[in-house]
């Protein structure tokens, strides 16, 4: 197996943007979004269309920041949580950019970044974008219960973020100075978790496996990074992941955190274990993390995008929810 991929040609993040809903605006990272909509609708009639609109807006913001036009993009790698990836296809159709639809559940942001970086690094594309999104109201309807249905959410449950994040990658020109330096694609890990309201536990073994592989192959140490962010394990999954890594002799420090935990204000918002969904890690990375890079506060971070692989039918058929975790490393040059 190939192991850790090193991007020698320095694919750079030319621009990034984050768009979010109301809950996200009121969370810890509200000020890092380029735009939030208090109605969660983004002027659209349905929440599915709103999710597409978020992707369109996010890519537009990123294009504007980088001073590029859609014609400057050679491809876009995009994904979301809705059936057949329609959030992305309807949202990005009007750009007229060659399109790759991805499904990596909540790990899609990291997966898209990795693929975009690969194609740019190899010179197939001069510039490629990666966009991903999730919408709480669309995901609830598809995966859980109707929106107005009165049900109690167990303490281990997470809140699908209404958010989208977009990145534009190109060969290094010193625009932001943030490059993708390494990547490690994840393997599917099935640990037999069937509880749909404990996604953190289903994804934690995959995250632990990818993180452990990375540190044993790369020779790096957790303390070498300013921040090691898992995608959306939430409090429950993140603490399981920490314990799993410790049991393998890898002690993670204070710099080990999770996008789902960062996104919301756990004391006020009562969203149990934190955020989840494609839009969670995408918007936290595109908004908050990129801002911290720009401020010079961080120089080296790992993002481990985590995804729970399942469908409403697989859950009803009693199949276990397996996890996947893709790792990408961001470095300031």
């Amino acid at each position: 197996m190939a192991g850790v991929i090193k991007f020698g040609n320095k694919p750079e993040i030319l621009a990034s943007s984050a768009v979010g809903g109301d809950t996200e605006a009121k969370g810890n990272l509200g000020k890092y979004f380029d735009m939030t909509d208090p109605t969660d609708r983004f002027g659209k009639k349905t929440f599915e269309q709103a999710e597409s609109e978020m992707q369109r807006l996010a890519l537009n913001f990123a294009l504007k920041k980088s001073g590029l036009t859609p014609d400057d993009l050679d491809a876009v790698f995009a994904g979301d949580l809705m059936n057949q990836c329609t959030g992305s296809s309807y949202g990005l159709a009007e750009f007229g950019v060659p399109f790759f639809g991805l499904y990596g559940a909540c790990s899609t942001a990291a997966e898209g970044l990795m693929l975009a970086a690969m194609t740019v690094n190899c010179g197939y594309f001069e510039r490629a974008a990666s966009v991903s999104s999730s919408h709480n109201s669309a995901a609830e309807r598809q995966f859980r219960f109707p929106l107005g249905y009165g049900c109690q959410r167990p303490p281990t449950s997470q809140w699908t973020a209404t958010a989208s994040g977009a990145f534009i990658l190109g060969l290094c020109s010193g625009e932001t100075g943030v490059v993708l330096s390494e990547a490690l694609p994840g393997k599917i890990v099935d640990k037999g978790i069937t509880d749909q309201s404990n996604m953190g536990a289903a994804m934690a073994p995959a995250a632990a496996s990818t993180i452990h592989r990375y540190f044993s192959e790369s020779g790096m140490h957790p303390d070498d990074f300013d921040l090691i962010l898992t995608g959306d394990l939430g409090q429950e999954g993140h603490s399981i992941c920490r314990e799993l890594l410790l049991s393998q002799g890898l002690r993670m420090g204070e710099n080990f955190s999770d996008c789902g935990i960062l996104l919301y204000d756990s004391e006020v918002q009562d969203l149990h274990c934190g955020g989840s969904g494609c839009g969670c890690s995408a918007s936290v990375t595109a908004g908050y993390v990129m801002k911290k890079f720009a401020e010079g506060k961080i120089k080296n971070i790992l993002l481990i995008g985590t995804g729970a692989l399942m469908s409403p039918s697989s859950v009803l058929q009693g199949l276990a929810v397996s996890g996947i975790a893709h790792l990408v490393r961001f470095s300031k040059i």
Binding site: P154, P155, T156, K191, G192, I193, D195, N198, A201, P205, E236, S239, I240, E243, C273
Partner: peptide
Amino acid sequence: YGKYVKRHALPS
């Protein structure tokens, strides 16, 4: 792992 997760989970 299932048993560990059950033990670990915040109880309702």
